[in-house]
Nucleic acid binder design. Sequence first.
DNA 1: GCTTTCTTACTCGGATACCTACTGTCCGAGTGGAATAGG
DNA 2: CCTATTCCACTCGGACAGTAGGTATCCGAGTAAGAAAGC
Lengths: 161, 161
Amino acid sequence: MRLSEGVEWGVHTCVVLAWLDDRAPIPSQHLAAAHELPAAYLTKQLQAMARAGIVTSTTGPRGGFRLARPPEEIAVLDVVDAIEGGRAELFHCTEIRRCGIGGDVPASCFKAPCSVAATMHDAEEAWRASLAGTTVADLAGSIEAAAPGSTEHAQNWFTNR
Amino acid sequence: MRLSEGVEWGVHTCVVLAWLDDRAPIPSQHLAAAHELPAAYLTKQLQAMARAGIVTSTTGPRGGFRLARPPEEIAVLDVVDAIEGGRAELFHCTEIRRCGIGGDVPASCFKAPCSVAATMHDAEEAWRASLAGTTVADLAGSIEAAAPGSTEHAQNWFTNR
DNA sequence: GCTTTCTTACTCGGATACCTACTGTCCGAGTGGAATAGG
DNA sequence: CCTATTCCACTCGGACAGTAGGTATCCGAGTAAGAAAGC
């Protein structure tokens, strides 16, 4: 079990779009070239993010993708949920506690949610809370801090296209 | 992306084994019947837990599985790691930051770990920490609290086999 | 009655198919811009 | 010179294969219990 590889692509792509700020839309072809990714497949992830309202798409010449809102308002969790399709659910309870040994037990015993599921759910919420605490703007800033000039370098890179 | 269904089976099975305490080994056939699961496939999960040192297996007549150590010392995280095979890794960084746009950037800029990977890693650690904070004994206790008599019921259920 | 041996049935363990979902690719619909022709 | 029209190249969008990992199953190797025979 592993997150889709598209999640990594989606986050990095959002960071690039954040660096480019208010520029004209960037075609998926260029965004893919920026990380040497298969363009057709990256488009699939961009479409998912468009449906989730993270990016907006423009068709026709000079078209492409841009961020739908300021990068400060885009959490990493949003990207994960968008690409994983709906609310990412690590654990799904199938209520096996009611089967077999639990078959002849009064239904009132199952009124409380399954403890196993609750434990997994709590952990999942901790995971989601952590991802919700970092925005695309945070990432763009920390990368710029670790490698000064990244923003300008990215802007130049896309200009020469 | 979802955790393997075997994780749910493994945790519930450990809870049952905790209820039975120090009994003779329980064959996988009976453990599967306890939750109406396919026996052959549950055996696969039990083998994984045996390799991880969570349960011990005994072959031959009157053989089966039992907990390898007290349920207070078995965290839910241990079961997850065992069944997912090795250390469960939700996110795997492929270092795409070095490709394309990052191709002609001095290597010193990549000395610090990738910020995206670090964010995902932090969230993953929060998830693992939460799972590490609950033991099989905790679960067995909370289920008994929600449905008093579960422990004794389980013991009787396995005795009539 | 006790010990030893043999049989036997029962258990795990790894090797083997199947199926879903992620990965990767392609071609068509739609659109905005630019060139062109007419006023 | 300005405007309206036509054409065209460029973009997204959804539909279509390939593949890896999770799901499910089976049969064989090993073992410990129990019966039986010998002492």
